[in-house]
Design a protein around this nucleic acid. Structure first.
Lengths: 300, 300
DNA sequence: TCCCTTTTACTCAGGTTGAGTATATGTGGG
DNA sequence: CCCACATATACTCAACCTGAGTAAAAGGGA
């Protein structure tokens, strides 16, 4: 086995939901994800990441999951003499105490992916993107049909429905078509805010992973405060999925699974009938870490 | 960012199914997974792995998916001055032309995990394992309940059903309890054949990932020959899942999804009514790479 | 007091899933 | 030559799940 030394870097996609907006922790004014080197004294990759996130941000880090390991030569502006291996992690952080418009470092997912938020119907950003992609498909007649099918399925065109889990595929498609700034493009309108190197790709990976995961594992609760109302829980899920959910079905599913219990308290925040407060049944944690925790889909 | 150089190594879990037995490609007489260094000239991690698998084994490699990146200090016998980062991949290989009992290098999954094969009911290997785990749970009274719940859920004890997707969790549990040889134990009977370093953990990761994936993405076809019967397809899925499936329901689900089409040929291999031969509808590939491809569960 | 808003509760049709049973069509032995 | 045998294929049925809609309850404010 030949010697093959590489620079190892840990990248964190830390996510929280505040005021029904999913946010990601950033550095450099929102242009990059926080990262740090993997060092010799770290016990494991995960432990290494935990350490310096704790050190640098002080945020208690609940859930942590490995996302992906990248080392593509052509996607980051590194020197060619030495390779960098980037190991990315998805971390979930509890909502901070309502930091107004936005605490320094936290930015909304949908600044970077305006086309991913379908809570109020199809966003306007999708039209110019679809148009640009279609034009790209037409440039190469031999692959045209194949490309067109990918576009239609990814964006939910021509009879295909919108699938919120395809966030990464959509970004990769736009990258391939040269629509995003990271791919060297001019920046087609509506293609969102760019990030350093392939950090936006990692965020897209995180979004896709999380949107898939909330459907079968109770990870949402890592983002919720101690006690919450059912509507609050639903709005948090909707924020992550970028979809509006059917209220009665959401509630039915939640209490079928017996994941939460009433605290006895009530909340009377927004005008209307006061809502019961609930808490996550921590005692049941590992049990549900194994079994499922599905969520209702669609509506809109 | 401090300099943090590490040795980067690519590890492949190559899987094929031959004669209804899922196999993994190994080196060192079945004691290790094939691996190679990640080199400067590789375009990406995936490209690097493809290259040397092709070079060393000559096996055409269809599906390839990143599994996990490890760098645990306490789980591999490395020198402490320099770290090794192991990036593992799951690769699916088409069944080789019936290599009798076993071509050199290929070993059955269930040599390493005898307790994972439930096609003919609960394997005998589970009883001593459950016993040893229960004893381990009892050693620490404070964590006893917690541990017992984990054991029951993982092994399908005390009312919980067997969940084939928990292969990794079961192995990790046994590792934690010190039952497997890799954890420095004597080797409790029925705990399967050990492997070098944490290679068996990677195989367990691959099994878990693949067992989950076949339920919602048509990856099985990467393991099938050009044409096959429905029974053959079912037996392949059963081999991977380690479960017996309900035949009528399996067939119903398969043709509901229109993943395959008749070739027009028939097969009359085993005594009985000849079966129609089918082929996977490649044309539809990307379409189904996106949508779902569920499989029926249970039956025993 | 009445209207508005939000929570909570109930209903219903269609589809999916698990499970069982029956019929077709070959092979090979007597 | 025909009859068991083995497997493939087809059909049925009840329980459950899911999407979708409607109605009643409970506060706040004009």
């Amino acid at each position: 086995m030949k010697d093959a030394l590489a620079h190892a870097e840990l990248i964190a996609v830390l996510t929280a939901v505040t005021n029904d907006a999913p946010r990601v922790m950033t550095v450099s004014k929102g242009e990059a994800l926080p990262s740090g080197p993997f060092e010799l004294e770290h016990r494991s990759l995960q432990a290494g990441l935990r350490e310096w996130v704790n050190e640098q941000t002080g945020h208690p880090l609940g859930y942590l999951e490995q996302l992906y390991t990248f080392a593509d030569r052509d996607r980051s502006p590194q020197d060619r003499a030495r390779r960098t291996i980037s190991i990315s992690y998805l971390g979930l952080v509890r909502e901070q105490a309502a930091p107004g418009a936005g605490a320094p470092g936290w930015h909304g997912w949908y600044e970077y992916f305006p086309w991913e938020d379908h809570r109020e119907g199809r966003p306007d950003a999708l039209a110019p993107i679809a148009e640009a992609l279609n034009a790209w498909a037409a440039t190469e007649p031999s692959r045209r049909d194949h490309r067109q099918k990918r576009i239609d399925l990814s964006l939910g065109l021509n009879g295909a429905g919108w699938n919120e889990e395809l966030a990464l595929q959509r970004y990769e498609l736009m990258y391939e078509a040269g629509l995003v700034t990271e791919a060297g493009a001019q920046g087609v309108p509506g293609t969102g805010r760019p990030m350093f190197a392939d950090h936006r790709r990692m965020l897209a990976t995180a979004i896709t992973r999380l949107r898939a995961k909330i459907k079968y594992r109770p990870v949402v609760f890592e983002l919720m405060p101690e006690s919450f109302t059912l509507s609050h829980l639903q709005r948090t899920v909707e924020a992550l999925a970028g979809l509006a959910l059917h209220k009665p079905n959401f509630r039915r599913l939640i209490d079928q699974q017996e994941l939460i219990e009433e605290t006895g308290e009530m909340s009377s925040e927004t005008g209307g009938r006061p809502a019961k407060l609930y808490r996550y049944r921590r005692a049941i944690l590992e049990e549900h870490a194994l079994s499922s925790a599905r969520l209702p889909l669609s509506r809109n």
